[in-house]
């Protein structure tokens, strides 16, 4: 328990540091959001309106940087991430919650499928080492080294186009209203197939390789020989002894990859113009939309930290050696 509290304290500190950086970095970037907004409205704004925009964005010159920093924290605790510039005057929190569902559904589900599929195949390949499964290895090594945005481009090039089943971009057919109905859901699934497939193909190999290698390492441990000598069935030795122990590094890898669901697939979303968080971040960068950028960075940071904490907890549960007490 003491260990867990230590970890939590560490993560709280990291979160503070990340949020602080998150506040300062956009302010160090040259350029001014209000200026870009003025450009957007093609200069047709009164001086009064411009001044009130400065106040609204918390960029009014009266307040020093520390005052702004404190305000930032105050707003954070109220769940207020400010107003988005690009989607003015929609609050950032609303923009994020609108797009995060897309990312979670697409990348979240594929990450989970990829992990279970890859780990399962890895167990098999590691246990049946020297059989036909070894033929999989060059293929998986090749696939794991292919960047997935490139795979996405190839998929778009080869599989989409006029008359093709697969749409080349977007999250659903334009014109549909997002709702749980028989028009929207099939359309959303159809749009997610290609991005999901590219993520799956390029990420599953990593799980296969790491699990297989751990299986091979663990298979030479003494306790595996002992388990065989005990007359246990091959299946029990493979799952309860070899795979159970080989799983440990993969589980922490999985928890970390959960953290990267939110931010890690930026490129896939850009390639497929998928309306997820990564695509939103891409748009925000282009529009110098500081509040939205900050908001998305915050979500990414927090999800990575939470995933790390989950990895720690999973390790505590799975490996008794990490439990200090007792």
């Amino acid at each position: 328990m003491k260990y867990l509290l230590q970890r939590i304290a560490f993560y709280v500190f990291t979160a503070w540091a990340a949020i602080t950086l998150n506040f300062f970095i956009p302010r160090m970037v040259p350029g001014d959001p209000v200026q870009s907004l003025i450009t957007k409205f093609q200069g047709q704004m009164s001086t009064q309106a411009i001044n009130s925009l400065y106040v609204l964005f918390g960029l009014d010159n009266d307040k020093g940087i520390w005052g702004q920093y404190l305000d930032y924290w105050k707003q954070l605790f109220h769940g207020d991430l400010g107003l988005s510039f690009t989607f003015f005057p929609t609050p950032v929190s609303e923009v994020i919650s609108g797009s995060i569902a897309w990312t979670l559904a697409l990348v979240g589900i594929t990450t989970v499928i990829s992990f279970f599929l890859g780990t399962g195949l890895g167990v098999l390949a590691g246990w049946r080492r020297g059989s036909w499964t070894d033929g999989l290895l060059p293929v998986t090594t090749f696939l794991s080294s292919v960047p997935y945005f490139w795979l996405g481009l190839i998929a778009i090039y080869l599989l989409t186009g006029p008359g093709s089943f697969f749409p080349s971009s977007g999250g659903f057919t334009p014109g549909l209203v997002p709702a749980w109905d028989q028009y929207f859901i099939p359309s959303a699934i159809k749009h997610s197939l290609l991005p999901a497939a590219t993520i799956l193909i390029s990420s599953v190999s990593g799980w296969i390789l790491s699990m297989r290698n751990m299986m091979v390492t663990v298979a030479s441990e003494d306790y595996i020989t002992v388990a065989h000598a005990k007359g246990l069935s091959d299946r029990r030795v493979a799952l309860s002894y070899a795979a159970r122990n080989a799983l440990l590094p993969n589980v922490s890898g999985f928890a970390l990859s959960l953290g990267f669901i939110v931010g890690g697939t930026l490129l896939v979303e850009i390639v497929f113009s998928y309306p997820g968080l990564g695509f939103q971040l891409f748009l925000a960068l282009g529009a110098k939309d500081y509040p939205l950028m900050q908001g998305i960075f915050l979500v990414i940071t927090i999800s990575v930290l939470v995933a790390n904490l989950l990895a720690d907890i999973a390790y505590l549960l799975l490996d008794p050696r990490t439990r200090k007490e007792g």
Partner: peptide, 11 residues
Amino acid sequence: FQGAMNSLNPV
């Protein structure tokens, strides 16, 4: 077996 330390599965 030889390895007293490693004959038992640690988990």
